[in-house]
Structures are given as C-alpha cells and as structure tokens.
C-alpha cells in the first residue's frame, strides 16, 4: 500500500506540531526524486517562528522495503547526521524522525539548504569558479571530521573490512555469471594489495560530486548518508576520485574539481592522520570496480523484470566505462617505437 500526498501532508503536520510551536499547515509539497531506495519531497511549513523550508526523506511509497542488511535504517541515518553536525560537518538539521505512528512509513524530516547538487553545473558554471578552487580541500576537511567521530558514540552500524567488502562485491559479480576479464584482473590486483586492517572508522559511503550541496563559496551540505557504515576511511577519499564522478574533468582527480594533494591537505587540516595518495589510489580502483558491478546490478533489475525501464536496460552497457577507466589506471601506455 502506498500513501497519497494528502496523507503525507497531514502526517507531516502532526509530526512537526511537537517540534515547532504554532505549526499549522504544510504547503507546496512536491516530490523531488523517487529513487529505488529513497523518496525525497520538498515542502514548506508555517510555524510560530515563520515559514520553514523542509525536506522529507522516506522509504519509496512509504513501504518498509527489504533493505540490504548493510543499510542503516532512517533513525540511524538521522542519528549520524546529528553526530556529523556536532563534529563540524555541514549537514542538514533533522527536526524529526518519523515513526510507525505517523502512518507514512519510515523516514525523517530535514532542513532544506539552498544550493546546487548537479555535478556538471558545479564543475562548469562560472558561478562556481571560486568554489572549484576550494572544494577538494573542503572535501578532505569534511571527511577527516567524519572519520574522527569517536566510534563508541556511533549507533550500531555494519562494520566491513576492506577484505570483507571485496568479498561481497566478488559474490555479487559471481552471482551474475557473466565474464568480465577486466573485473577479474581488478579483483586480483586488489586482493594482492589489500591494506592491513587499520583502525576502522565511520565512513560516509557515497561521498562524491552529486551528493554535495554547493554554493559559490563551496560546500554547504553533505547529503545521502544511506550507505554509511564503519570501514577503512580511505574508502571515502578514493570513491570521490572515481573517474565517473569527475563528469568529464578527467585531469582533476578529486571529484573533477581538484587534486589529490589538495584533498589530502584538507584532510590533514581537518585533523585526519595517516592518509596517503597510495591508499586513496587503492580505493579509487576499488571504487571504479564497484561502480562497474553496480551497473551490472542495475541491469539485473531489468533482466529479472523488477524494473523494465529502458534506463535500467541501457545502464548495463555503462559497465564498460569503468573497464576503460580500470585499464587506463592498471596498464601502462605502450612505449613509442
């Protein structure tokens, strides 16, 4: 059973009446996106303190989905946002976590932060020219603050060592039973270079261009914490450097806007220690392989009939983008004759 907009409106009014005094009506409720894992809605709320611009994140259709075991629930995600805020990371505030009693499924309400999330605009528009100069540094700084959040203060989260994560992706890839020699080579290359079990920390899990709200001055908020877990902190820096998230700006390794050196400089400024370009490189290669396997997974939704959209079908043919990235990284260019 899914829920209609009227039901969402009244549920939000009820849920938020206890948060903001003088709360009356929800207006301008509109769906921004309907991903397979999250629905995002924008709305305004009139309160005794004036108009509040807010965002609702909830399970698609308000139905408690069978989430991957690794995924944190909404209450956990909201708790992590609060911890990140306390640690000095720019994130939305979370005035309310929805419970079953609210009747529109699991989710939470967060404050709406103005700014740009479309990666290509951030990387090309004149408006963001100054932001591009500081983004790599700011990303490093934000990641160091996330990684320094004391583990004992975290809510229960899935903890994954690099070896375990590699095994999980190997299992997923194997389940599709379709040969990709480039992925096999990458798996082996990574297995041969698995990092020693360093201290595991909170990891954002999807820290990249597209999941950041950016203004002309730089990062305004870090979004999309639904893949957060405990793991090797270098995972976040490497994922940011995956070529797919450079959106054509291939020479600017960090997010399409900066250099790894600048990213590491920001990481040290944020109090991060022990991070090296080599560790970032390992996770850039791992991240590239992961995105290639995720493309296979999305195609599987088409092949198995759960989503027969042309988009899910066509994305299978984007695995090869990650294969060219992998061979560009792993194999030297032939020396001139």
């Amino acid at each position: 059973m899914t829920t209609g907009t009227d039901q969402i409106k009244s549920a939000l009014e009820a849920a938020l009446s206890g948060v903001y005094p003088g709360t009356s009506t929800v207006t301008d409720l509109r769906q921004l996106s309907g991903g397979a894992s999250q629905e995002t809605w924008a709305f305004n709320l009139s309160t005794g303190e004036g108009l509040k611009e807010l965002i609702l994140r909830r399970a698609p259709g308000g139905v408690v989905a069978k989430r991957a075991t690794a995924a944190p629930d909404h209450a956990t995600e909201a708790a992590i946002l609060k911890l990140a805020h306390k640690a000095g990371v720019s994130v939305p505030e979370v005035p309310c976590v929805l419970s079953d009693a609210h009747g529109i499924g699991p989710g939470y309400v967060m404050t709406r932060i103005e700014g740009e999330t479309i990666a290509r605009k951030i990387l090309r528009d004149a408006e963001f020219a100054n932001a591009r100069k500081v983004l790599a540094f700011q990303c490093g700084e934000a990641l160091a603050r996330i990684h320094r959040i004391p583990r004992e203060t975290l809510p229960p989260l899935n903890a994954v060592t690099p070896r375990e994560q590699l095994a999980q992706y190997r299992e997923t890839y194997d389940s599709y039973d379709y040969p990709h020699p480039v992925f096999e080579a990458a798996f082996k290359w990574l297995e041969q270079r698995l990092p020693e079990a360093d201290e595991l920390t909170l990891v954002h899990g999807d820290f990249r261009n597209g999941n950041l709200i950016v203004g002309p001055e730089g990062i305004r908020a870090v979004l999309d914490w639904e893949l957060t877990h405990v793991g090797d902190p270098a995972e976040d820096l490497g994922w940011l450097c995956v070529n797919s998230w450079r959106f054509g700006e291939t020479t600017k390794v960090a997010g399409g806007f900066g250099s790894v050196e600048h990213l590491l400089e920001g990481y040290r400024a944020g109090g991060g220690t022990g991070m090296t370009a080599e560790r970032v490189r390992f996770w850039e290669i791992f991240g590239t392989l992961k995105w290639g396997i995720m493309c296979m997974t999305m195609y599987q939704a088409f092949a198995q009939g759960t989503d027969r959209s042309v988009e899910r079908a066509a994305i299978g043919r984007r695995s090869s983008e990650t294969e060219i990235d992998l061979v560009n990284i792993l194999y030297d260019r032939p020396s001139p004759p």
């Binding site: 959106f247 291939t250 090869s320 294969e323 061979v327």
Partner: peptide, 16 residues
C-alpha cells in the same frame, strides 16, 4: 567502449 560509450571521457582521453 567505442561501441558502448564513445563519448565517455575515459575513452576519449584514454592514454592507450
């Protein structure tokens, strides 16, 4: 990739 995604930056700028 020349068949799948010939405009992809990783292909266009491939050192190979």
């Amino acid at each position: 990739v020349a068949i799948d995604q010939p405009t992809y930056a990783g292909f266009v700028h491939s050192p190979h």
